[in-house]
Amino acid sequence: MGKFYLLLFFVFIFISARAQDNNGPRITALGNAGVALQDVWSVKSNQAGIAGLKRAFLAAGYENKFGVKGLSNQSAVFSIPVKDYALGASFNSYGVSDYNEIKTGLTLARSFGPKLFLAIGLNYHQLKITDYGSAKAVSVDVGVQYQAFPNLWLASHISNPNQSKYDNNTDQIIPAHIQFGANYIFSDQLLITTEVEKILDAQADFKAGLEYKLVKFVALRGGISVNPFKQYAGFGVNYQRINIDFAVSSHPVLGYSPQVALGYEF
């Protein structure tokens, strides 16, 4: 049975070179167009975003991939502001019992005034396949966010620019990619975010998402990405210091991937 999932897994990897990471339900529901957002889950999409957070956050999420039993993403993120700096940490475990990928990240972000955030992240990757062994690697992320106008954020993010790999015996890649994006805040109720992403050796993707606050504590979200064409939807409920977010993404061939996360604001 494990072999079957292993096979399935490689099918998924083939179709989506980035399936092994997860940006949390809020950013996922926005079509993964999260590069210009400020959220605790920014530690995974663009580390610079955590420099915009005034308080410490902790969140944990679970995503099931394509309705396949046992194939999941389990993740946790944390960020804390320290004067002009912010520190962040992330953890993500992806796979099935016989195949597992773990990514652990540490982030240092700094705000240069209220309009400019910079960040650098360090990631430790572990890959483990039953009967085949394991491999390890380290990669670097760099991100920037800039508030060009009071309601417009521009951002850019580069992952693994030095193209570090597990080792020569492993074909599995750590994708090198670059993202540009903008987030436009129309009102307290509405924001629209977009992102262009280019993964090295894969096609460029355009993503867009929309978040609408029905009432102050309930947000509805939707998004798309065009390459492959995927649709996303989700909602978030904020009750005092607790956030509950839900998202589902729809792949035209592989089907639905639901996810949920619980967050706490200190």
Partner: peptide, 12 residues
């Protein structure tokens, strides 16, 4: 059809 803000409308 929803007018999400005075400048943005959505259709689903």
């Amino acid at each position: 059809i929803s007018s999400l803000s005075p400048t943005v409308s959505a259709v689903l």
